[in-house]
């Protein structure tokens, strides 16, 4: 039974993603928590907004973000929450980096920059099969914009007016080696996509109202659309130390306990 949250609950849904992700990471002492913290509102807005699992396709291009989708799917009643406890352990289908066995999404890939092409394929498939109601949502990370394949997909989608396609870009300015902006200049992000023929929105990625407004407009636009969400990999958890590694957070027991208490108090 799918229980999708009401739009007004999106902010709470986001914190539930944070808490569930924290509980998956804590037993390991490290992991991809920053990805869940930065994308929580973006994914929550999708579930609270236009995404219909039975009808639409959902793509998580950066496989390291799967933790947030496992959490969201459990929260929405689409994944047995008992399974979350197996995250990252031997034999589990819930691998830290997404695989072909990953639940909760229609496509993911641990080799970055490939998801948008798959999403374009889904959008084409819906057009060929005459399924005008079906939509395709793809989470893409800003780091992936360094890969050329993303721009090949962007050009194709605009040329073919794949209006059923919506990209949610997590612009958290984080990659393995540090701040994205210190390594490659990807700005102006929204203008780049506009110049490629997309409709683009540039919003605070932790503001669920701004995200929901942008998404509602995006899905009505006949062009492919991108919602750029400006985010932080430590958002919503004051318990994390200053300068925590956004790509791969170390989470000693005391920090994990403090972080859990903080989120539980906020959700109480």
């Amino acid at each position: 039974m799918t229980v999708l949250p009401l739009a007004a609950d999106a902010a709470r849904f986001a914190d539930r993603i944070r808490l569930r992700s924290l509980r998956m990471i804590a037993p390991h002492g490290f992991g991809y928590l920053g990805q869940a913290l930065s994308s929580a509102e973006i994914i929550a807005s999708l579930y609270a907004g236009p995404y219909r699992p039975a009808r639409d396709d959902l793509v998580c291009s950066p496989g390291h973000y799967m933790i947030a989708f496992y959490a969201a799917a459990a929260e929405a009643g689409l994944l047995d929450e008992q399974e979350l406890a197996t995250y990252g352990h031997d034999g589990s289908a819930l691998e830290a980096i997404g695989t072909e066995r990953s639940p909760a999404v229609d496509l993911t890939c641990g080799s970055l920059g490939q998801g948008l092409s798959g999403a374009v394929g889904f959008a084409l498939a819906h057009r060929l099969a005459a399924e005008p109601q079906a939509r395709v949502f793809s989470l893409v990370s800003d780091g992936e914009l360094e890969e050329g394949q993303v721009w090949e997909a962007a050009m194709f989608a605009a040329h073919h007016q794949l209006g059923s396609l919506t990209v949610l870009l997590d612009a958290n300015d984080s990659q393995v080696d540090g701040q994205l902006s210190s390594i490659t200049t990807i700005e102006p992000i929204a203008d780049k996509w506009r110049s490629f023929g997309w409709t683009a929105f540039d919003v605070d990625g932790h503001d669920v109202n701004a995200l929901e407004d942008a998404l509602a407009t995006a899905v009505e636009d006949p062009r492919p659309a991108i919602v750029v969400g400006r985010t932080s990999t430590v958002h919503g958890l004051a318990a994390l130390p200053e300068g925590a590694d956004g790509h791969f957070i170390k989470l000693p027991e005391d920090v994990a306990e403090a972080a859990t208490a903080e989120l539980e108090a906020r959700l109480a």
Partner: peptide, 13 residues
């Protein structure tokens, strides 16, 4: 770096 199955990062890694 990280040859073969020395990585627990799944087939993509």
């Amino acid at each position: 770096f990280m040859p073969g199955i020395s990585s627990p990062g799944g087939p993509s890694h």
